[in-house]
Design a binder for these strands. Structure first.
Lengths: 153, 153
DNA sequence: CAGTATCCTACGTGATACTG
DNA sequence: CAGTATCACGTAGGATACTG
């Protein structure tokens, strides 16, 4: 019998599938969450609760994908910093956080607050917008196949 | 030796961790993606590529969590519909799609286009906004512990 | 069509010891 | 401190047969 493996999502012609192939593993998003909080050292990331081998592999993958950059600090230590590509994951993080805040709320209130530095005010919940800046409701949005679609619908 | 299990994220006092505990499994987000495209039948979901037992379990979990609603169609068939809670996952879907569009682009262009029904125009890339509706850049945003935080920082 | 039920395997994971 | 290296284990996942 031919060997069996988990199916890769990478070949699927879909942004969601391909993105999940990179950041969809069990601990990866928690590592990234930490990175957005300013965590950048191996031993710090460990505090989140995964074991060393898992962290090693995830970090390697994130560096390979250009989401984190590894920088030597003084020959013996290194740090991991979000690249531009990594920083652009921010809307995903915020969306997940806001959904969790709403549907898995801690009774005492939000656990993490994202605020605008200029004003100190919390940001608005993530929402889609039109190109000219109007907030849109879920039902205002339709979807269709684009030029990169092989074919669906 | 005490039995070993995958560590649950559920106890972590974190919106991201708890959300991942629900929608973070390998096929779940692809099922939800399909649901947003109007897929609602078992055999249709199967086309995405997972096996029956996996689909069965994922659907059950999503129904349990109130993200999908299972409705009998005529005694023999049933369909799965996004609840309000499920629809509110839309920003997550959109954010992931846009990131994938940018960093894992298909050379021919977007595969799925989200557009505003009223105008027919594609929506803007997902971005955080201030409460009064100004788009914010990643570096405009800070984060701090909220009232529900046990303690960090 | 919509599942349920097996069986099997490999991968993700956890624990921990070890190295520079 | 920042990893690398083992090893063992269970669960997610794959294939497929079966049922109403």
């Amino acid at each position: 019998m031919a060997p069996m493996k988990y199916k890769s999502f990478a070949h699927m012609n879909c942004s969601i599938a391909q993105t999940l192939e990179i950041i969809g593993e069990r601990w990866t998003l928690l590592i990234l969450r930490d990175a957005f909080r300013g965590v950048n050292r191996f031993e710090e990331f460990l505090q989140t609760g995964m074991s060393r081998n898992v962290l090693t592999e995830r970090l390697k993958r994130l560096v390979d994908q250009g989401i984190l950059e590894k920088r030597a600090i003084d020959g013996k230590s290194s740090e991991y910093l979000l690249t531009r590509k990594g920083v652009h994951l921010q809307p995903i993080m915020l969306s997940i956080t806001h959904w969790g805040d709403k549907y898995m709320a801690n009774p005492k209130g939000a656990r993490t607050i994202f605020f605008e530095k200029n004003t100190g005010k919390p940001i608005a919940p993530m929402s889609p917008h039109s190109v000219d800046g109007r907030a849109l409701k879920p039902q205002d949005i339709g979807l269709k196949a684009g030029p990169g679609s092989s074919s669906w619908e």
